[in-house]
Computed example of a mutant assay.
Amino acid sequence: MHIPTRQTQDLEILTFQQALVPTNEDYDRTKWLYVPDYYADYRYLLGTRGENPLICIGINPSTAAPGDLDNTLKSVERIAAGNGYDSFLMFNVYAQRATRPEDMDQVCNAALHRENMAAFRYVLEQVGAGYAPAVWAAWGTIIEKRPYLRDCVRDMVAIGEAYGAQWLCAGKCSKKGHPHHPLYLRKDEKVRPFAVVPYLDSL
């Protein structure tokens, strides 16, 4: 479990470009994408490399790392493979590590959000030629934990439009329309189109 000891505004945050600079060799970089490449109070990216990744969007990262996936990431990996993707990338609406979402920053850290959006652009640019970015909305009801999370997603939607991103979901949406969290989905669950803009407008 990761419990933040302070708000991210009190931390020194690496820019995304700074966090891309390698600092250790504890995992196979030809297979894994992990930014920063060490355990920190925030995480921009975690996933595997490929031409056609399934880009899963959660709310915020927990403790997972290359070769040490938590149950959520194991489910993401299974769903990606079951839907014909050659890799998966775990991205989050907000980059602060917090196993319990109620421990997230009370107020959005604008600097952290800006760098997280730079990371999202990078993710979309990793998709191979001939593929449209497949963006799987998978945050469940946790988006209700903080008012700023909806605005963060709106920024992601705007960025995704420039790359032709296709928004998807898997499993049954909640009564309020929230897309299902990756946990407890069948391994053969199929992704399907998700109307993210009407959904955001309804919140």
Rank of each mutant, 00 (worst) to 15 (best):
H2I: 15
R6G: 02
T8V: 00
E12C: 03
L14G: 04
T15Q: 03
Q17R: 12
A19Y: 06
L20T: 09
N24C: 10
E25P: 04
E25M: 08
W32S: 06
W32T: 09
L33I: 14
L33C: 09
L33D: 09
L33S: 10
L33G: 00
D37K: 12
A40C: 10
D41N: 15
Y42R: 10
L45H: 01
L46Q: 01
G50N: 07
E51K: 15
P53S: 08
C56F: 14
C56M: 14
G58K: 04
G58E: 10
G58A: 12
P61K: 15
T63N: 12
A64P: 00
A64Q: 01
A64G: 03
A65R: 15
G67P: 04
D70T: 09
L73Q: 07
L73K: 02
S75I: 03
S75G: 08
E77I: 03
R78Y: 08
R78S: 12
R78T: 11
A81R: 14
G84T: 10
G84K: 04
D86A: 03
M90T: 07
M90I: 06
M90E: 05
F91D: 09
N92I: 03
V93C: 09
R97K: 05
R97E: 04
R100Q: 14
P101K: 02
P101N: 08
D103I: 01
D103V: 02
C108I: 05
C108Y: 00
A111K: 12
L112T: 05
E125M: 12
Q126N: 11
G128E: 05
A129E: 13
Y131F: 15
W136C: 06
A137R: 11
A137S: 14
A138M: 08
T141R: 10
I142C: 04
R146L: 01
Y148M: 00
V157S: 13
E161W: 00
Y163H: 05
G164R: 08
Q166K: 09
S174H: 08
S174K: 09
G177N: 09
P179W: 02
R186T: 13
R186S: 15
E189D: 14
K190I: 14
R192L: 11
R192C: 11
V196I: 15
Y199K: 09
L200Y: 07
L200W: 02
L203H: 13
L203I: 11
